[in-house]
Design a protein around this nucleic acid. Structure first.
Lengths: 133, 133, 133, 133
DNA sequence: GTGGTCTAGACCACC
DNA sequence: GTGGTCTAGACCACT
């Protein structure tokens, strides 16, 4: 498993897990239709409680990234992934604006900031070639 | 006052306040050496608790964005703003990676993502010319 | 076979099966006295477990929609279908009230709601004329 | 409190609670902006666990029926209620079709069925005059 | 064995 | 005081 949680972090475990699963999908490590580990299994591997994993899975299901399949258990959305919803745009907007403002105040130039953005988007996907579909 | 808090938001009030003050500095609405409203005053204007404003100010002072001035009270850092610390880089990295991954999964192209990043950085600074509307 | 199960649905398979068989009877696709596929056969065709089909049949027999026939195996109730029992009325009441309330809150007018109800009842029976496509 | 849970029912407690809260909104007993009891408080009154109430509230928040207000606690959506989404239409369709089919097979006429639908929609709203806005 | 539900008790952040 | 998070342990329905 490629997942690593930071027990000291201030971001909740279930949220870290959500982020890492989405990154897994983005990178191609998790492909549409792939089965995920069972809640119990993953919880044990990560050394956390079953309910915490369950919460992450549930939220990802509600968002449409995951599905429960009656035979395969929990799987990655095999059909269309959720698109760019208004909620996501709002979240993106809010978070980017804060980050950009702080970066600017701290003296980071626009080019440095944008370069970092591009790099992180690219990193995410680059692994696809070596690893995914 | 250019500050607007969203009582329905999931972001804590003190954090919203921090963000908006930093955005105010980035845009030039708040310039180095400018005095900020007193804790009591701002709390009253925003209709929130003293403690909340206090917490925001304290954290911003700790980070080096604000200072206490004998006569003017709390002012915007008149000397060098805090630079790009390791903590900030880590935060930037973590948050951007999550956002980029989700954007990618949702089908947002790299160009669209980067464009949005640049736009939000630019928006922040553009107001500087106008000197703080 | 006119039955289609959704493995991603939150409704249990045995319940989906029950619903579709009742809809089959309602539409006339299954007529009183008609034999049903054997448990084994149907399970194989649908790609699901024997137990699941068995559970559906058993419950439908208990309710009186199906019967066991010495020679034909399981058949559709050839005599009087079960009537409007107190249990059914209670279920109908409970579910309709919830749906109606949510529809109302979501801004669906009474006429739109009732129209939908009538349409779905009508759809079910209209196929009867065609005798079970 | 107007809420009554059936501990024997096969429908989960949190779902019963959700339904009753929506019915409360539909009837006008709960008006936009009204504060709801705290999770602890309601849980105690209903004799169930805090987490069960929490789950109901959380789901209703996600759907947009409720909001957390930083000062008033949990309140009924003060702005626009969620409209008729595709998911709701699908749910309505699925459930009504099953109910209609079973009603038809049990010998309930279209008029009797539709009348019941209209009655339950009406009941829900009628209380508004006496009780609500 | 799976996911789903419920309970119980604890700690924390926020206001 | 509030809601949010996490843990622990239990039972059930479904396949």
């Amino acid at each position: 498993m490629f997942i690593e949680l930071d027990l000291q972090s201030e971001t909740p475990l279930y949220e870290q897990l959500i982020n890492q699963l989405i990154e897994g999908i983005a990178s191609g490590a998790l492909k549409p239709g792939d089965p995920l580990p069972s809640v119990r299994n993953l919880a044990e591997n990560l050394g956390i409680n079953l309910h915490t994993v369950n919460k992450s899975y549930t939220l990802l299901k509600q968002e449409g990234f995951l599905q429960v399949h009656r035979k395969k258990g929990v799987i990655v959305q095999p059909d269309a992934m959720p698109g760019v919803t208004a909620e996501f745009e709002a979240k993106l907007f809010r978070q980017l604006r804060s980050l950009a403002a702080e970066a600017a105040v701290r003296g980071m130039t626009e080019e440095a900031f944008v370069k970092q953005c591009r790099r992180l988007y690219g990193d995410t996907l680059m692994k696809r070639g070596g690893d995914g579909q």
